[in-house]
């Protein structure tokens, strides 16, 4: 049962119960939707870019603790980053989830490390990565078709 405590750490439960940066961002310069057809969860990411810098990021949608906490933590982490740093953060987080050592060291994930327990639950990895795929889509132009985890 200790594994479950690794998965559902207090930080994750806290961000699930009180998600940060939750809601529509107005004005936003880009947005993208992520969809997990397996469970029907949908998440929408809003970005406000100031040139190449992420000035603000919010999300909305209904999801499980893992997808909600991941989105919440992500919007905090990405704010203020220049585009290349944001890309590196996404790559590092996805590498952490897939257990791919390369790139994991490239960026200090800080608080996002609380989600590392997810990689021991393969069927839940898509929950954690849903928001991140949507973020990548938003950075690459946004307002395109919804990205899916499939």
């Amino acid at each position: 049962m200790s594994d479950l405590r690794d998965l559902y750490q207090q930080v994750i439960l806290d961000h699930y119960r009180s998600p940060r940066n939750f809601g529509v961002l107005d004005p936003a310069t880009a947005c993208a939707e992520g969809h997990n057809p397996l469970c029907g969860d949908k998440i929408k990411i809003y970005l406000r870019m100031d040139g190449d810098r992420v000035d603000g990021a919010t999300f909305e949608g209904v999801g499980c603790a893992i997808s909600t906490a991941s989105a919440s933590l992500m919007t905090e982490a990405v704010r203020g980053l220049e585009r290349p740093q944001a890309d590196a953060l996404i790559a590092s987080f996805l590498a952490l989830m897939t257990g791919d050592g390369n790139g994991a060291a490239a960026v200090d994930l800080g608080k996002l490390e609380v989600l590392s327990g997810v990689k021991d639950y393969p069927v839940r990895i898509k929950c954690a990565t849903l928001a991140w795929h949507a973020l990548r889509a938003a950075l690459e132009g946004g307002d395109s078709e919804a990205v899916t985890t499939e």
Partner: peptide, 19 residues
């Protein structure tokens, strides 16, 4: 969320469907 419920039940060997 049902998915979290399913994970916690699975940890106890209980197979249910969430979704």
């Amino acid at each position: 969320h049902p998915h979290d419920v399913a994970t916690i039940l699975d940890e106890q060997g209980i197979a249910i469907r969430a979704g």
